[in-house]
Design a protein around this nucleic acid. Sequence first.
RNA 1: GGGCAAUUAGCUCAGUUGGUUAGAGCGCAUGCUCGACACGCAUGAGGUCGGAGGUUCAAAUCCUCCAUUGCCCACCA
Length: 907
Amino acid sequence: MEKEKFLKKMKTLPSAYDPRDHEPQIYKKWEKSGYFNPDNLPEKLIKKDEAGKELTYTIVLPPPNITDKLHLGHVAMLAIEDLLIRYHRMNGYRALWIPGTDHAAIATQNVVEKKLFKEKGTTRHDLGREKFLDEVWKFLRETQSTILRQIKKTGASLNWSRKAFTLDEQREKAVGKMFVDMYNLGIIYRGERIVNWCPRCHSTLADDEVEYKEQKTKLYTFKYSKNFPFTIATTRPETKLGDTAVAVNPKDKRYKKYIGKIYEVDFVGIKLKLKIIADRNVEMDFGTGALGVTPAHSMVDWQIAEKNNLEIIKVIGENGKVKDTFGKYSNKPVAEAREMIVKKLKENNLLEKEEEIENNLSFCYRCDTPIEPLPSKQWFVSVDKKIKRLGNKSLKEKAIEAVRQKQIEFIPERFKKRYLDWMENLHDWCISRQIWFGHRIPVWYKKSSKFKVQSWKLENKKEIYVGIEPPTGKSWVQDKDTLDTWFSSGMWTFSTLGWPDNFKNNKKTGDLEKFHPTQVLETGYEILTLWISRMVMLSLFTLNEIPFEKVYLHGMVLDKYGKKMSKSKGNGIDPIDVINKFGADAVRLSLLIGSTPGNDVRIGEKKIEGHRNFVNKLWNISRYILQNQESEIRNQEINYKNLTFADKWILGELNKTIKKVSDSLKNYNFSAAGEKLKEFTRDDFADWYIEVSKIEKGKNEILVYILKQLLILWHPFIPFVTEEIWKNLDAKNLLVIEKWPREKDYKAGLNQTEEYIFMKVQSIIVAVRNARAKYKIEPSKKIKVIIYAGIDYEMIKNEGVLIKGLRTGIDKLEIKEKGVKIKDAVYLVVGNIEIYLTGAIDIKKEKARNKKELEDLEKYVSHLKKKLENKNFIANAPKKIIKDEKAKFKDQKIKINKIKTFLLSLE
RNA sequence: GGGCAAUUAGCUCAGUUGGUUAGAGCGCAUGCUCGACACGCAUGAGGUCGGAGGUUCAAAUCCUCCAUUGCCCACCA
């Protein structure tokens, strides 16, 4: 009769939690509540600092590319950030998490270009700039909502009303203002730099568009002329027409005497003036150890030339041919010029050696043409120019200082070194890109002028106009180039908070005042240098304030074989698939647990499945409690006067868990926090306390209380299922805004001895329960159990002292009890079980059973006792004695847990 | 070439400033369908912590060297 009633009750909630039935509705409910917007959070939840100012907590979402589809790396990022945001929201902060997308100029342009070519066979040059950009925007309108929609599926509590895009109107304003400000201060200037030029595509290539290939090339060893004292080696004789120096290693004894000298030579009919200079980048072992410096056509040589103020002679033009100022070599294609020069050298007996070497050459990723490094006019941000407003420090200095002085901290710390190393070697930042999609450079030139300018100082103000709004009149042409995407995303922390409108007369207002600097920037370590450094510099430049206090770097998400996930390999896990299959909670948990900051994480479906199972476990815990505890008890206070041993213990464990979880989260140790919660939920609460509670059924407000606390603690990790259970508990508010539990002293925990004994008792109680069920013993009947606290559970079981009796039947327990000598027993009651714990043990009897082992044990125990009791004895003991002591027990394979229990028994 | 990391159970990984017995999940073995949960429960097997030295009363943890793997940067004239 009673059983039927119970089973009927059980049917109201399904035994397996199906996320698909709940997640979409829950997210809608959250959005409707408005709590993702910190302005809407209830006043009474918000904490204030000593000055009476409300606490805020801000994270900007690293904007995914607008054409992206969600991958597991995104989900890892979202899970971590959502965890931080939800945790702080529940802790009384006005927590703001700003969503947005990045226009990802190069990537997006490439996608559209490829698509156009595939569908219509047209290139962007066929279309022209305006029509091509129309196509890009058309494409973006189709794709842009995908990533945002997918982000919502993960449960991310982003403030959608503050959504931003790196190329929207507000950001365009910010970018323009930044450029103009920097230009006016001389931080932005125009200069030359070597770029990767594809003579076939007639365009520059970004560094990541260059492909390197091992190739066999000829290395020529030659003398420039007869009057030049030594030979040099090159794979590109034709560029030697532009040499202005020869570099050697300063340590190289062979050439030391030549350093500083200038030679005028006749190189295959062309006059060159060569200075011998020292540079430690020159390898003594390569070639002849002497390097002909061609500033205009090699990256390294360019740097050497800059350092040594060398003249720059351009030999090769954008068409891949020699320029027209080189006599008979003029206008010859590179390969032809090379042949001619080699031939000439041979004729003059200047070619000493011709050998084949393996060489790493750069090619255009699109057309496989060898790259021609060429100098080209570009816009730069100076990182070295001192800025008055910043205490006469440069951007570089400020950005280094902020980290050195620990205004910005890295998690994990090792990335601090990488940041500083990179920063210290930082050269001026080239911000112009020869692509069409992006923020167009806000510079206009007079149509008539030829902008032959080398640096900002030489700009003729009448010929150039720099401003946010275009100049009036038709005589102006805008610069064709666009800005590096990192220029706009580098402003992300403050451009999303209303800069420049919210920054008047050097004072922050509105959101900018409230939420900047942000607290954490959480992103993948691969963009540490690309993005983070730029954000630091731009924020310091314009606000003279750091953009964020902490940088948390997560690793890459790899497949279960440790490979990068990619579609072409077919090894990728589509997060949307697994979210549908296992639920967003399970996916999030899989990415949070078992991963540590800065380290890559491997993930396979099996892992997600395991966490799905755990989520289901939590569901069933609540299902059991909900069905057994009537609603009137759900808000009842705990009566601390009337606690059982078990109650005290579980409340004590809960306190420890709250502390451990809170501490771990504060230290960005998400995995540890999650694992501790899992351990408490399953091992302590479900497998033990709930089982014990079944012994004495009835009202138990502690069950409900602990469940509620658990839901709060779990919520930042697995928001959906916890919110759903919370709803079933007749809670008035959404769990999103529930207060995080404080670690309290309930005076409910156990003392150390009690705890130790209790740990022992745990398994016995479960065994009793099992035995009761098996032998159909009335729940009301009292059971008396006697345990040797001094003996390990394993020993008890093996030796069949008491537990075996329990497991095989209560009757036998009674019989065994007769032979036991009890003294100094501890008595306790759990439900209807009376437990006597005794430290007494009949050593003689045990000895007889296993003499050898026990002797060893006793010896070791006394040794340990000494060690434990007298640390000074150990500390002060001569080395030799300690070593002898150790040697005595070296070969004994004694399981230490036996020793420990023995130790207890001897005391 | 420069730098950073990793190496712990069959697999994937934890292991906070050196300190009682090196942990978890998965997998494996055995037994459980008893009133939340088989997406479950109980019990168990499995590790000389990559190798070699060193520091220390005490090392997975600190130092040195070596090996293997991965990543980042520079780029070979």
